Amino acid sequence: MQRVNMIMAESPGLITICLLGYLLSAECTVFLDHENANKILNRPKRYNSGKLEEFVQGNLERECMEEKCSFEEAREVFENTERTTEFWKQYVDGDQCESNPCLNGGSCKDDINSYECWCPFGFEGKNCELDVTCNIKNGRCEQFCKNSADNKVVCSCTEGYRLAENQKSCEPAVPFPCGRVSVSQTSKLTRAETVFPDVDYVNSTEAETILDNITQSTQSFNDFTRVVGGEDAKPGQFPWQVVLNGKVDAFCGGSIVNEKWIVTAAHCVETGVKITVVAGEHNIEETEHTEQKRNVIRIIPHHNYNAAINKYNHDIALLELDEPLVLNSYVTPICIADKEYTNIFLKFGSGYVSGWGRVFHKGRSALVLQYLRVPLVDRATCLRSTKFTIYNNMFCAGFHEGGRDSCQGDSGGPHVTEVEGTSFLTGIISWGEECAMKGKYGIYTKVSRYVNWIKEKTKLT
């Protein structure tokens, strides 16, 4: 034993070699072989497995989906700052455009905790909710729209109204504003409101030439003092309507412009014939205590009207009353817009006519005020429907199939267009061939041609 100890002390290297040989010859039971080890760690190889990531292109799944990435790591994937920024906006807080917040056709661009709407022409605001041009839906104005110097929408209202708090709607500024039905039992019968379409306001006024200088022999019209197929109006439903009495009662109609003036057809009036105007009328054979009678003290036909040349060209006249009318729910003026808007309103496509005229061709006159909704007829169809001249200051309205029309005794009465609950004068009943005849239409004086003249002559002093 002493000898062994001496050998170990003198030859430590020998001992180490012996131990190493023993270990190498022993069977290893701690580690699995290569094949079995792979069965336990069965993990798919990654895209760049075996390579240094710093030297390969980034992978979106590896960089940002398996674990949260930084902007720089995302930049490695896209290799483009702009594309990385677009991805980053949604990656950080989701897609803010998912709810489609942009209105009126706006395009949404996502941002971090926010979004941006790219608005089409005519709109602005956070969600493109603000109209900035009158060309689109009248700028959301209830009545009139004008573009300011910086191309912003400025709404306005006709006389007797003021802008509401929203700067879009119009509200009454006087007790009985024009064009409004205020009798409670008839307010439910107000005709369907007309909503502004998209309009090209630059070209809204037709490029028409008034044929002022045409000389033409007097034409022989049949029954051209021209509501057939209409309905009984309720008291106060058309408070701007008046009836004219002269040699015979209810020979023509008219509309209240203001307390002192009536507008009617020029062919209705004769110099030297006494005319009485009755406002607030409903049943011409009954006294309903809503009527107001006034005498006409002055007749002003349009300066281009000449019955000797043509009885229905420039067929418009103004009547001055001896005493002002007292405005109330049964006696209310009709609204008159400017030339541009009167023309736009007419193009809405349908209007209402009213009167006490004959209820059928050569038949009896109506006792109760009649009204009828009539569609506008395109000019080409209008011209083809008659052998008589249709001037540019006239328009056609009615039904091709016949059966409904204005008729004798309705002449001078109103053709009105309702705009968001307020009625505007767009025409004056003038003439036609018979009444409600198939293929024939009622012919009306186009008020847009005469609004400046009306307003100039009827100013209240």
Results as ranks from 00 to 15, higher is better:
Lys347Arg: 15
Ser255Phe: 01
Val331Gly: 00
Cys268Met: 01
Thr158Ile: 10
Ser107Gly: 08
Ala380Ser: 10
Val248Gln: 13
Leu32Thr: 10
Thr417Met: 04
Ile15Cys: 11
Ile210Arg: 10
His303Gly: 07
Leu20Asn: 02
Pro120Gly: 09
Thr190Leu: 07
Gln96Leu: 14
Cys134Arg: 03
Lys137Tyr: 08
Leu346Ser: 04
Ala9Ile: 10
Leu23Tyr: 12
Gly413His: 10
Pro177Lys: 01
Arg384Lys: 15
Gly94Trp: 08
Tyr201Val: 11
Leu460Arg: 12
Leu23Phe: 14
Asn104Cys: 02
Cys407Pro: 05
Pro120Arg: 10
Ser448Lys: 02
Asp150Cys: 04
Trp356Arg: 09
Ile7Leu: 11
Lys39Glu: 11
Thr225His: 10
Ser365Asp: 15
Ile214Leu: 09
Gly398His: 04
Lys362Ser: 11
Ser385Tyr: 15
Ala37Tyr: 02
Asn80Thr: 12
Ala266Ile: 01
Arg358Phe: 07
Ser148Gln: 12
Lys137Asn: 14
Pro324Leu: 04
Ser255Gly: 05
Ile275Arg: 01
Ile136Leu: 09
Gln2Arg: 15
Pro375Arg: 13
Tyr441Lys: 03
Val199Ala: 05
Thr186His: 11
Cys178Ala: 01
Asn36Leu: 09
Cys170Tyr: 01
Ile112Tyr: 09
Ala317Ile: 03
Val278Tyr: 05
Asn295Pro: 04
Phe395Arg: 02
Arg384Val: 07
Cys268Phe: 01
Gln408Ala: 07
Gln237Pro: 08
Thr271Glu: 15
Lys440Trp: 04
Val181Ala: 15
Phe31Trp: 10
Glu270Ala: 11
Cys396Trp: 02
Gly21Val: 13
Thr271Gln: 11
Arg83Cys: 06
Ala397Val: 07
Cys18Pro: 03
Ala192Tyr: 11
Lys387Thr: 10
Ser448Ala: 11
Ile40His: 09
Gln185Glu: 14
Gly402Val: 14
Val416Ala: 09
Lys126Pro: 13
Ile443Gly: 03
Asn283Asp: 12
Cys28Asn: 04
Ile443Pro: 03
Ile7Val: 14
Asn48Gly: 02
Val374Arg: 04
Glu433Gln: 15
His415Pro: 00
Thr287His: 05
Asn38Asp: 15
Glu286Pro: 07
Asn258His: 04
Tyr115Asp: 04
Leu383Lys: 12
Asp93Trp: 07
Ile136Asn: 13
Lys446Gln: 06
Lys89Cys: 06
Thr381Asp: 12
Lys387Pro: 09
Glu165Pro: 12
Arg373Lys: 15
Val416Phe: 13
Ser70Ile: 05
Gly122Ile: 03
Tyr371Pro: 07
Thr209Leu: 14
Ile284Ala: 08
Arg364Leu: 08
Lys137Ser: 15
Lys311Gln: 06
Glu61Ser: 03
Cys102Phe: 01
Glu193Met: 15
Gly398Tyr: 04
Glu124Pro: 04
Val30Lys: 13
Cys335Trp: 00
Glu165Leu: 10
Glu53Ala: 00
Phe55Asn: 14
Lys234Thr: 12
Cys97Pro: 03
Glu66Ala: 05
Asp232Cys: 10
Lys152Gln: 09
Val263Pro: 00
Glu323Arg: 07
Asn135Val: 12
His303Gln: 11
Glu124Val: 10
Asn393Thr: 11
Phe123Leu: 08
Thr276Asp: 06
Glu231Gln: 09
Glu53Leu: 00
Glu129Asp: 11
Glu288Cys: 05
Ile136Gly: 07
Ala37His: 03
Phe87Ala: 03
Thr276Gln: 09
Glu434Asp: 15
Phe388Arg: 09
Glu72Leu: 05
Thr81Val: 14
Cys396Met: 02
Gly122Trp: 04
Glu129Pro: 04
Tyr305Cys: 01
Val56Trp: 00
Gly398Val: 04
Gly229Trp: 15
Glu73Gly: 01
Leu244Met: 07
Gly432Trp: 05
Pro375His: 14
Gly403Ser: 15
Tyr115Ile: 04
Ala9Cys: 12
Pro333Val: 00
Phe224Ser: 15
Glu98Thr: 13
Cys141Pro: 00
Glu418Ile: 11
Lys126Ser: 12
Glu82Tyr: 05
Val242Cys: 04
Glu67Ala: 03
Val195Gly: 15
Thr422Gly: 02
Ser107Ala: 12
Glu72Met: 06
Arg46Tyr: 02
Glu259Ile: 05
Leu376Ala: 04
Gln408His: 15
Ser169Tyr: 06
Gly409His: 11
Ala380Asn: 10
Asn147Trp: 13
Glu323Asp: 09
Lys459Phe: 07
Glu159Arg: 07
Lys440Ile: 04
Lys459Glu: 12
Tyr341Ser: 09
Leu52Ile: 05
Tyr161Asn: 00
Leu376Pro: 04
Phe144Cys: 01
Lys126Asp: 14
Ile428Cys: 01
Cys157Pro: 00
Ala173Cys: 06
Leu60Ser: 03
Cys117Ser: 02
Cys97Ser: 03
Gly427Ser: 00
Gly21Ser: 14
Leu52His: 08
Lys311Trp: 04
Asp198Pro: 11
Phe345Leu: 08
Asn80Asp: 15
Val377Ser: 03
His314Gln: 03
His267Leu: 02
Asp378Leu: 04
Asp212Gln: 11
Ser385Leu: 10
Thr287Cys: 07
Trp261Tyr: 08
Trp431Ala: 08
Glu142Tyr: 05
